Simulated scan of single mutants.
Amino acid sequence: MPDVVQRLVEMRVRRPDAVAEAAANRRRPASLLGEHGRLLMVAADHPARGALRAGARPMAMADRADMLERLVLALSRPEVNGVLGTADVLEDLLLLGALDDKVVIGSMNRGGLAGTAFEIDDRFTAYDAASIAAAGFEGGKMLVRIDPEDAATAPTLEAAGRAVSELAGNGLMAMVEPFISHRDGPNGRVRNDLSTEAMIRAMTVAAGLGTTSAHTWLKVPVVEDMERAMAATTLPALILGGEVSADPDAAYESWQKALTLPTVQGLVLGRSLLYPADDDVEGALDTVVSLL
């Protein structure tokens, strides 16, 4: 996409107001759910947190032209009715005319950079509720990692609660992605606890954030006892695809089972859809669409 990159750079240099114009002219979706009755979203907010790995490729998401090509391909499918990203990515897609009739969710807290000492301190460094509303997007997403041993969890929870309230005040979706997390030693990697019990705890905390839950959706991974986990809340939930699986067939099967649960309303797939192990994005799209 070299010509596309050149066109995007020229617009950003010569006509920065083209971004706001494209947002104002975007055709908004009639519903959060697609014709298949689900919300099928592609996520592309990983680079803003310094997380560029996809499977065995440590810098897979470092090539913006390649990432945009994969995103545009995914969004060209009518069954893929939403996208999640930070301003730089969403504005590229706006300028490319790829967001008409799509549910657009702005990623809000990208300050907990991957692999840093302050990773749990998920500051709100990207979108806020006011900018999401001004852009005419459908909602905002926030990552809420709860580390029982890291005091930085508390201000993250406070900020997330405020964001949920402000989004709801604008009638916009608050997509909350909660985890119980732990660090491997003082300077070790932050790992998310994917046990059923930890996910239940994280979900119940996330569901109570803010002054109302009327517009709150949860974004959760598949855990061992998904039925028991999802029984912990009545909030609508989206299954997240997570990292590229070494066994994609098993991942697809787990997503399909989760979609039978009453609270599960769709899927949010990022690297697992854009960078599948065999690099066949079309094939991954076909398989995911068949799950719906």
Rank of each mutant, 00 (worst) to 15 (best):
A206P: 05
T212R: 03
L261E: 00
G115L: 11
A207L: 09
G266M: 07
R57P: 06
E91C: 13
L143G: 00
D17L: 11
D147N: 15
D63E: 12
P47C: 09
D45M: 08
G270S: 09
D147S: 14
R162V: 05
L71Q: 05
G242C: 08
G85M: 09
L269Y: 05
A231S: 15
G270L: 07
G85S: 10
E166R: 09
T196P: 13
P78K: 00
L292D: 01
T156S: 13
P221S: 08
G50E: 08
V19D: 09
V281N: 07
K102I: 00
P29G: 04
R12P: 00
D247I: 01
P236A: 07
S165T: 15
L40R: 05
G242Y: 06
G37S: 03
A114N: 11
P78D: 00
L285K: 01
I132G: 08
A60L: 10
A258N: 01
S254M: 04
A160E: 08
A98P: 06
G115Q: 11
L285I: 00
D88S: 15
A62T: 13
L40E: 00
I200T: 13
V4Y: 07
V164N: 10
G85L: 09
R123A: 09
A202V: 11
K257S: 09
L292N: 01
Q256E: 05
E253T: 07
E177A: 13
L75V: 02
T196V: 14
E21G: 12
D128F: 02
K257Q: 11
D184Y: 08
G106S: 09
I146M: 15
L273H: 01
V220R: 03
A43Q: 03
E224F: 10
Q265L: 08
V83T: 07
T196N: 11
E10R: 11
D184V: 15
H215P: 04
R26D: 04
A258Q: 00
A237M: 05
L238F: 03
P2F: 13
V144K: 02
M142V: 15
H182A: 14
D249N: 03
S76G: 15
E177G: 13
E138D: 15
A207S: 14
R145C: 10
R189H: 14
S195Y: 15
T260F: 01
R49L: 05
L90Y: 10
I200S: 06
G140V: 09
G171D: 14
D100F: 01
H215F: 12
E21C: 09
E158F: 11
L292G: 10
S272I: 02
A54I: 06
H36N: 06
R28F: 03
V190D: 06
E10K: 08
M108F: 02
S195W: 14
P276S: 04
N109I: 07
L93W: 04
K219I: 03
G161D: 05
R38T: 01
L113I: 14
L209R: 03
G283Q: 02
A74M: 02
L274H: 06
A258P: 02
L143Q: 08
D286E: 10
S245M: 02
R271G: 12
D3C: 03
